[in-house]
Structures are given as C-alpha cells and as structure tokens.
Design a protein around this nucleic acid. Sequence first.
DNA 1: TCTCTAGTTTGGTATGACCAAATTACCGCC
DNA 2: GGCGGTAATTTGGTCATACCAAACTAGAGA
Lengths: 245, 245
Amino acid sequence: MNAGSEPTNLRRAADEVVADIEARIASGELKNDKPLPTERELMEEFGTSRTVIREAVAQLANRGLVEARPRFRPVVRRPDYSTVIDATGTIVRYMLNEPDGVLNLYRSRVFIERGLVRDAALHATKEDIAALKAALARNKAALDDSDQFFESDMAFHEVLFNTSRNPIFPAVHKGFSAWLAPHWAKMDRSRERNLANYRAHKAIFDAILERDPLRAEEALVEHLRGAWEFVKDTFAEDGVDVPSL
Amino acid sequence: MNAGSEPTNLRRAADEVVADIEARIASGELKNDKPLPTERELMEEFGTSRTVIREAVAQLANRGLVEARPRFRPVVRRPDYSTVIDATGTIVRYMLNEPDGVLNLYRSRVFIERGLVRDAALHATKEDIAALKAALARNKAALDDSDQFFESDMAFHEVLFNTSRNPIFPAVHKGFSAWLAPHWAKMDRSRERNLANYRAHKAIFDAILERDPLRAEEALVEHLRGAWEFVKDTFAEDGVDVPSL
DNA sequence: TCTCTAGTTTGGTATGACCAAATTACCGCC
DNA sequence: GGCGGTAATTTGGTCATACCAAACTAGAGA
C-alpha cells in the first residue's frame, strides 16, 4: 500500500515458535485434542527460554488454536467457525457497554435473520421445515416454563440460521445469542410474553410454509421489533435512552 | 448456569491485571492513543513480577485494546468494530486454507450483500445514491488501470455496505476484503474484465435507482457469481476442486 | 533553534529457583 | 490379577535477577 519506510515490524522470537506450532497443527503432526509438548521440551527443541515458549503458547491460546486451562497442559484445538466467534467475545462484550453497541448488533442480527427467512421461504427443504416444526412444538410445550421457553426460543431462531446450510451462520447465531443474552436475561418474562413469541414464531413458520418470503420477513421483523421494545426497557431502567429499531 | 463442582477455572494472576487495565481504559483514566505505563511501573503498582505484567499486556494486545509493537511502549487503543474484525483475522486466515472455508465465507458475503442491495433499492437516501454514483464514476475512470480498478471496485462495494448506516457492516466489509483479497489478487485482470465488472456495478446501481430490489439483488448475485468463477480458477490451478456458488 | 551525541530508560530474552497442583509410579490389599 | 490409595515426580505459574539492543531523553555544540 505505502512505500517501505515503515517501522519495519521487528519479529518477536515467540512469533517464530507460534508459526512453527501452527504449522504442526495444520499438518496434523500435533493432533487435535492432544496435549502440546511440555514447555520444557519445547524450550529445548526451539533452543529458547521458557519465557518465549510461554508467550508463544499464550498467543496460540488467544487465537483459539490451543485451549490452555491454568495448571493443565495446553490442548490442541483445531479451530472451527465458532472459534472465530469466541475470539471476538471479549472485545464485543466490551463494546456492548455503550448502548449503541447493542443497538447496532441487534440491527445486524435482524438484517441477517431477515435474509434467512426470505431464503427459507424460497428454498427451505423438507428437512428445514421439519426442523422448524419441531422447534415450534418445543416452544409450545414450554409455554409455562419461562426458562425452558427462553431456551426453546433461541433454538427456534437457531434453526433459522441452520437453513443457510453455511456453517458460518450457526456460529454467528451463537455469537448473537451469547452477546445479547445478558440483556435478554433481564427481560421480564411471562406466559403472555411466551405466548406472543410462540405466535410470532408460528407466523414466520406459516409464511415459510406457504413460500411467502415477503410475509415471512414481515413477521420476523415484527417479532424482533417487539422483542427489542422489551430489551429497551432494560436500558431505560438504567436511565439510558435507546432508540427504537 | 451449573452448580459449583466445575474444574473451578483458577484465576491467573495476569487476569486481574488485565481486568484492572481494561477498566482504566474504559473509564478513560488511560487515554486513547497514549502509552501504557512502563512494565516496571505496572509491576510495582500491582505488586507482581514482570512476568505477570508482560502476560497481561500480551492479552490486552491480543484483544486489541492496546497496540504493542515490539520494542515500543504499548499504546492504548479504544476498540471499534474493525478491531473486532481484526481480532478474528489470524484464525479466519487459518481456516481459509481449506477451500470450503473460502466458499463459505464468500457465500456469507453474497448473502449479506444481497440483503444490502435490496434494502438500498428500497430505502437508499439521496446521499447513498450520490455516493454510489461517484464510486461508479471512479470505476469507469479506472477501466484501463487494473490495479486502480481493483481498488475502485472494492470501494464500490464498500459504499453498498455503508448504506446500512450500521458501523458494523463497513467493518465486516473490511474483513471480507482482507480475507478474500489474497484470492482476488491471483485473479486474471484485463480491460474486458474491468468493463464487465463496471457494467455489473452499473446494473446494480440502475436497479437501486429505479427502486427495484428484485432486479438489484439479481444483478448483484450475477455479478458475484461471475466473480466467483474467476476465483475458482485460482484454486483449479492448485488442483483443488471448488464447487460453484 | 536545530542537530548530533552520550547517557538513561525500556522492552525482549535468558537463567534459575520455588511452589502448588497435576500426573505418574508404586505398593499393599482385596 | 485388578484396584484404590499414597508417595514421588513432573509440569505449569510466578518470582527475582541479569543483560542486551533499541528507543528515548537531555544536554552539548553549531
């Protein structure tokens, strides 16, 4: 992009170790779910101090390539799409402190899910329909148990994300759920709310069944808009003013 | 969520330091773009060894809250949405090694951009239209300079992402561009290709102008589908078989 | 006021040591 | 011989110290 007078990022010794271990994981030499060699072994192998090895392992852990529980041997973890989402977790959570953060995130979620239900209405397979139907049934069965309903509610939306047949989307849904959950947990819940949500889900499902993308999208938007009004209230309690969708 | 018989994730000493510094950044005590205290200061302040301090700083760096160039004092960086994207960079790149990774990512991109052009056709403001028009003009002006056209091509799509009026989307676009760019860079380019792309952009723009979401979406899909065929070729060279969109 | 330089500070790395928790080896008992 | 529990060993987490080279700072000189 720009000429070569840059600060010429020096290489840290740990970076080399990281790259090497990364390669070993990719090549399969270090197998999934198996522990890394001990720090002392690595240190001898790379001819560096434990300081460097530990920094390297920490980096790998932060990238999600290994899982490093304190006091335990780090374990190799071949990353998948939800690893990517997890990696963003702390920063996202940090940015959600600002109310606009939640709003923007929620809007993104609505945007994506709108597209998903449209596509579902157009292209949903028999299996998709069956999965939606099952999720819907679980909603209905959980009407009287708000905790359980909450779970089955998320599960219904997850099915929507699964219809994309693109593994990135379920991972994204997982992220949305995790990030927005704290606010949803504060929401008031009641049988009436559950019933309203169930009916909203059913409206979406029916529209998909009838292959009506427009109506499916509308139903979804109304559903999520309604939910947002309740999330808003959890902010209002803190005296924070949040706009509607 | 579950009772307390878990592996009881011990707290690492560094975590406390991380949390504390995080709080100082959030509170503004540590100001943006200003250097962190020296490691030796922090170590005295927290009453721990430099080992712990360094590990904490490394964590903060990995989360994007500070920028730590080797040999320089770490600098506080208040995270924004593209920080989140950057944080995923290494893992995403890692997963793009598998051809399915690129395919899934590209499909996600198409999915999102489809929604964006639909919405643009429905709700684009005068300013959006003007920005698109300007981007289009830059495409046309760069027809004969493939490097410049490539840039203006990405810029056109970026404008599409901007129409969302949600700062998350431009950040996502930045991610898509960065992750997919390596493959696009290998693509053959020529005046004809540039011209075809320009015309595709124009078709999208025209459809938006005429408030025709359906046609806008179709034009976009055809455009991106065409581009994918060329990306495919870069895989075919490596003997990797990649399906169509 | 600016430039160059010598001195100081600071991050990167290497050692070596110690602790507590985790793992392994071992042993006696059913 | 298989098993459960205990002792010995290994391993990750932390500390203290030292040294180097690069970055920074202050002061001399033009």
